[in-house]
Design a binder for these strands. Sequence first.
DNA 1: CGTTGCTTTGAACTAGCTCAAGACCTGTGG
DNA 2: CCACAGGTCTTGAGCTAGTTCAAAGCAACG
Lengths: 245, 245
Amino acid sequence: MTRQSDVLVRRLRMLGEVTKKDEQALGCLPFRPATIDKGHQIASDGELLNQSCLLIDGYTCRSKTRADGGRQILSIQIPGDIPDLQSFHLERMDDNLVALCRCEVAFFAHSDLRRVLQDSQALTGLLWRVTLVDAVASRVWITMLGRAPAEERMAHLFAEMYVRTGMAGLRRGISFFLPMTQSDLADCLGLSAVHANRTLQDLRRRGLVELERHEVTIPDWPRLESFAGFDPAYLHYRDETRTAA
Amino acid sequence: MTRQSDVLVRRLRMLGEVTKKDEQALGCLPFRPATIDKGHQIASDGELLNQSCLLIDGYTCRSKTRADGGRQILSIQIPGDIPDLQSFHLERMDDNLVALCRCEVAFFAHSDLRRVLQDSQALTGLLWRVTLVDAVASRVWITMLGRAPAEERMAHLFAEMYVRTGMAGLRRGISFFLPMTQSDLADCLGLSAVHANRTLQDLRRRGLVELERHEVTIPDWPRLESFAGFDPAYLHYRDETRTAA
DNA sequence: CGTTGCTTTGAACTAGCTCAAGACCTGTGG
DNA sequence: CCACAGGTCTTGAGCTAGTTCAAAGCAACG
């Protein structure tokens, strides 16, 4: 039972059962801890990886930069997530993994994970499931980017982070940490920085979110949820651990 | 060796090795063939599945309908794809699976697949890989929807389908079948039907694509590829089977 | 050979963009 | 403790990519 495996097991338990035996097996997985500075790239587009990292503390995001200089943030990770788990089976990275603030991570070798999974069908299924939930979230984003207006898109992002930080035990009441500039938000939502600013002002005016010094507050969750058309089902948390408000 | 398992094995071989033994195991997987009419839903958002289907002939798409009536197409499947493989681990569907034309599919029970995968780490990894490649493609779409202008988005879609149909042996020279209306294209690209029409005209005028009666022709592949900023790497085909032009 | 769905066109509108400048923080070195 | 620098946020103004609405032309299919 390392501290790292504990973080991982807690995350996995949101998606399914983890037996004592599997927990023990993960406890034997060797982790190499590291601290990553804000803005630093943990892995880059095109790079070949033979390890992945478990995020212990801090936030990361995956982003893609286009030939024309445009940047798109694809997803945001919080402690307990494994940002580059997909590289376990697709060695070549398809995007950049960047630290949004000073992060604590724990690297593990793919070969070591492979050894652990060899003995557990259940654990394999659970990690597979982790990558699938990630994919579902991507598809939800496609729908938002393709069809939702800016206000709804931004509201949806805050709603998702509200629920995820809540499930991970990182939310204090109705507030959570979100280390992103408005420019980052824009890159996430497919907007210009200027319009992200105006959209945020709009949400503030409506009393849906407050945001200062990277601290987001949701004064009226049901209203935000309905404004954003947010349905937590796509996060696929187990029923028992339901997204309690 | 059923006809169905043959289609599947050919697809899997694009992503990795399949041993004789694994091929045999898949040959014993029981398939239930079915024909689906154009426009018919094979599975719907929210539905609980205990089976998935292998697409044998025809095209399908996955789509999501918003509360406001807007529709977003998330991905397009061609023969050899398993459109709802993710339901193997996430029982609840997160979107609709629709036949874009009359389709031939082959259903298989999750319990049967589980039995087959129990005996093969390699096959498990390969199917996992299939779902991961799907996820990567979704992320590429996020980037296109968030940051690329309409012409590039549409060109990219044609480019992707050009390569995929080519790899699957479904392309005749520089032409391939694409059973989508302009309205479907619009729902795929996050555009209005009117603008999809004008964008298509633009691409025609530039001599990048021809399209009539659901038949797409790419007169000058290198030019389309560069116009779309298309890089086939994200499809993760094995090097040996590289996207030969 | 008429009906229905698909494509095309025009015209007016709007969401979101770019450019540009000013205000505001926050951390750093003197 | 102040002054300065660099990033972030905010605002205004003009522009453009893409929208909506509406109507006409086509093509496919029973």
